[in-house]
Design a protein around this nucleic acid. Sequence first.
DNA 1: CGTCTATTTGAATGTACTCAAAAGCGGTGG
DNA 2: CCACCGCTTTTGAGTACATTCAAATAGACG
Lengths: 194, 194
Amino acid sequence: MIEKIRQNIEQKINQKLSDDEFRLFFDSLSLEGFTKKEILVSEGKICSFIYFIESGTLHSYLTDPNGEIHSIQFGFEGYWISDLFSFLSDKPALFTIEALENTEVYSLSRMNFEKACFEIPKFERFFRILIQNAYINSQQRLALTFSEDAKQRYLDLIKKQPLISQKVPQYLIASYLGIKPQSLSRIRNKLAKK
Amino acid sequence: MIEKIRQNIEQKINQKLSDDEFRLFFDSLSLEGFTKKEILVSEGKICSFIYFIESGTLHSYLTDPNGEIHSIQFGFEGYWISDLFSFLSDKPALFTIEALENTEVYSLSRMNFEKACFEIPKFERFFRILIQNAYINSQQRLALTFSEDAKQRYLDLIKKQPLISQKVPQYLIASYLGIKPQSLSRIRNKLAKK
DNA sequence: CGTCTATTTGAATGTACTCAAAAGCGGTGG
DNA sequence: CCACCGCTTTTGAGTACATTCAAATAGACG
């Protein structure tokens, strides 16, 4: 469904795209499929695409010096996802992005991204908003991490992104919350008893 | 010292500015002074400036629903600081920025920012890098928060930004680390004994 | 010097962690 | 279709670290 992307962009920039504008942009995307557990982006390698998730679920995470993984973001249908740092700076990626189930994405290459920004000012705006949102999310998550306990963060999370409890295994949710799977299990247990 | 800003920009974009380019940009800055405890930006109000710290120390923080403050960033001589979210989106600021001592800043208004980006492509690049860095810092801080304990985060912090221990009161450092002042005091106490 | 704020210290509490093991669940091959 | 294997989730017991509440010291500033 092509319309999903168009709506997504129009909603973010808060204005309509002409058919020509959208066509021009859409032609520079390519549809790709990934199977469960397949890696789209590897920590340490250059990430030259931004992905729009047509269907499926993705997971971005980083690996710390102790070898533990820490979830950064879960991507569902209708989300944009990438390692923006690598994409924008052309340096090695900080995150790995992996498919949690079979997933179809529209991918936009760095080159076509530059082209779209250059040719259509609305896209320059669109991508600025995308980056800005990523930054805000990161800031707000940091704030929540400090001001709320794990139970509250868990409740906030499943309220804000209900898909998570359906699509994402519990040990990855724990990783996103910054706690161990055992602790999340206990938290859920207590909540269920009420 | 005008040269401080010029060097800062050239270093970030990794290329030289012509005298004309710099002059054009520099003329759109205005030098302002703030006294200790004065507020430059208030949570909830629009932030229409980016500040370059000529001398002094600034502190940006947010207030959570319980009324507790959480440090976001400390700004020292030679740093750029702002509420980027508010500045870029023209919506109410998420943070408050306050002077920790008497401080002189060069301020750049939203309008002059747009003008600089429009007239001089190098500045478009410069500001993109500024936003990108803010984003990366935020991500990395999040990662560290999850992978290290408070003692290690404290050691990392004073190693990375030695000025903090000189210029910033301990209870604000604690807030930055996401712990209570009492806990930081105990951590320091233990470290001193070794 | 006195007041206000910041820091330190003590004792009790709580939340998440580790280590360890058991139970649950899903998929594969016999 | 069932038995088995690997992976996820749950549960238990003991521990570690930060928190709370409270009070004492130390420092800064007028």
